[in-house]
Computed example of a mutant assay.
Amino acid sequence: MDELLGDHLRALREAVATGRLPGRAELDGCRAAGARAAERGLPVRALVDAALAGAEFAGPVPLPALRRTVSALMEGYENAQRSALRREEAARRAFVDDLLQGRADRIAERAEQFGLRLADTYVVAVARPAPPAEAARRIEEALVGRFGSHNVLAAVRDGALVCVVPGSLTVAVGEFTHHVRQVFAPGWRIGVGRAHRGPGGVVTSYREGANAIELGDRLGLRAPVLKAADLLVFPVLLRDRAAIEDLVTTVLSPLLDVRGGPEPLLATLEAVFASQGNQTAAARRLGISTRAVTYRMERIRRLTGFSPDDPTQRFTLETAVLGARLLDWPARPLP
């Protein structure tokens, strides 16, 4: 400890001998000593105790001199800690970025450093739009404080805050959502991927979470939290684009000739389907009368030949409406 605090003790002895307060050079030496203490992992309380104990043997140290040297020690200690935290954050962000892009270079070695067990399953939650860096840091610190750094990886990437947690720790996703709700501005949305195993599984879960947000935006879904497991039908629809285009054209093209355009009728169908066929509830969603909903539904039946009251026809209508939203129809005309 004497070796570590040598500059501090010399500054105090000089102050006792000359009555002069420590100058810039002496204080820089104390800052360097504080930084070395932080790098060696010495607790800050032990550092201060050692500095005060050293002052007892230096003679009648002027209080202003002691205050300056101890303050410089603490400043060096805190600066070193902040630098270490910034390096760790940068390394964590770089690792998460490489992990989500599927870069295999030294992934296993770096994963061990961050407590990631590559044989386990992981879930990725994606929150958009990303908050300011300080807000993202607060969310990460809160999650790490509760679940441990070996269970949570968080970083800002591509305009989103990404959180990687073990598949067995689903409560962490709920906690992540809670903090996003507290910190993010209105309009945020979270996409949650499914649990997958290994580094490749992390990439897959991340893409699922990001795609869930994209689907939610395209479909106009109201829920702020979207789970990829609940949206599996939509990628299936999009895999056969020609078939979904044919369905939309065949079922919904008669609505194009309606005065005022097809959008009010499409919105009515969506509201009725979301309300499990309850037209009164659909009217409340739309802010119109139940009679108006009934009128629109009858008009849809006459124009398309499909009735929501028939189970098979209802499924065809609902699938066509979902396909229209996925294809951004009618804003984008189909081939």
Rank of each mutant, 00 (worst) to 15 (best):
E263M: 12
Q313A: 07
F315L: 13
D105W: 12
L238V: 07
P262I: 03
A72M: 09
P131Y: 09
A119F: 10
R296L: 03
V251E: 03
R67P: 00
E75C: 02
G148Y: 11
T249A: 11
P311F: 04
R117C: 05
R146Y: 08
I244T: 08
L52R: 15
A51K: 09
V183F: 04
G305V: 02
Q81V: 15
T304M: 01
A142P: 01
R291C: 00
A136D: 08
R241L: 14
L118Q: 09
P235M: 03
T204H: 08
V123M: 08
E263C: 00
A271D: 09
R93Y: 00
V258P: 02
R197F: 04
L326I: 09
V293S: 05
L27E: 05
N211T: 12
T18I: 09
V144T: 09
I300C: 02
A50D: 15
G76C: 08
P131W: 07
F176T: 04
G145M: 10
G167A: 03
E75V: 09
L247E: 09
D158S: 11
V124N: 05
G148F: 11
L116G: 05
A142N: 13
E109G: 05
E109D: 14
R106W: 08
G23M: 01
A212T: 10
P308I: 14
G34H: 05
A55Y: 04
R86E: 15
R302M: 09
A65F: 13
Y122A: 02
A104R: 14
G23S: 11
G102P: 04
Q113H: 14
R239G: 03
R103G: 01
A223H: 10
R189K: 10
H150C: 04
A324G: 07
R92F: 06
A58F: 11
T121M: 03
A274N: 04
P166M: 05
S253K: 01
L52Q: 14
R67I: 12
D105C: 00
A292M: 06
F95T: 04
Q182Y: 06
E298A: 10
Q113L: 15
L247F: 01
R218T: 03
L237Y: 11
L161I: 07
Q81Y: 10
R259Q: 13
R137T: 13
T280A: 15
A17V: 00
G19M: 07
F95H: 05
E318M: 07
Y295L: 11
E3W: 06
T121K: 08
S289Y: 07
E141T: 12
G305F: 01
R106D: 14
R10L: 14
R218A: 14
H178S: 07
L303H: 02
R82Y: 11
R146W: 06
S83G: 15
G167I: 03
L63H: 13
I190W: 03
A292L: 10
F114R: 06
G277S: 08
A119E: 15
G201F: 07
A80L: 05
G216Q: 03
L116T: 11
A90R: 15
D240A: 00
L21C: 13
D217V: 12
E56N: 01
L232I: 08
